[in-house]
Design a protein around this nucleic acid. Sequence first.
DNA 1: CGGATTTGACCTCA
DNA 2: TGAGGTCAAATCCG
Length: 257
Amino acid sequence: MNSFQQKAMEKLLHGRGCANQLKLIMDHTESDDSSMEREDLAKSVLHCFSDALSILIDTNEHQDDQSNNSSPQDSSPVLESGRKPLHKRGRKTSIAESSDYHRRESPNPFYHDGFLWRKYGQKQIKESDHQRSYYKCAYTKDHNCEAKKQVQKIQHNPPLYSTTYFGHHTCQLHQAYATCPIDTSDPEDHEGSHMIRFDHPNSTTTLRNHQNQNQNHITDECMTAQKAEDWSPSQWMSSEVAHAVEAFEFNPFLDIL
DNA sequence: CGGATTTGACCTCA
DNA sequence: TGAGGTCAAATCCG
């Protein structure tokens, strides 16, 4: 185990410890007295998992870079053999013209990059069996953020997706609210059609409403075992924490049963 | 009904 | 002129 993996392991172990504490509190608390403590613990869990993921992602990127560097002819941002680099062809834009791009390959088309994207186009690419999807930062208008990305399936079996990023995000404040990777069992059916969206504290729209709806469902009585399968972290903590916990499939009530 | 996605048309460049 | 990139109206969805 290298030092990166050891760090990730330490973070995960710490996260598990926090999750256990949280579970104990939930086991023995019926009132809202410890809601702040629950929230803090849930945040600790979230941070531990986020840190561990970051470490693992960084490690993976480092390995990717090394493998890419091992074949200098493969340093262009587009995979199709014999084709010009993406930033050299097609319509010229300030972004595409710049050398400010990088590429990631992942078996998951919705690879977590910490940002919120909006799809603005999809194109069948010649000499490729698969369509390419075009995304802009969701805060393009709000924050004049020029970051873009292109996602294209480059290999069918095993499925492999190439994501090419252009430009820099000028909407950094939103990064903190995007968290976990979404895994899909059938990426092909949903290629480019999902948004990974978590709540924003200033937002007055969709998910806050969703959260309110959840809160409306909370009653004073204790949860019964019958409700275990209905348990939702969003009933217990702020939405960004709740989503992260949901993503990790942490359900204390199922654990009890 | 508002916001996100889809998709055909259009723009630009090689 | 063909191909990639973008726009925007139509459509979908919660």
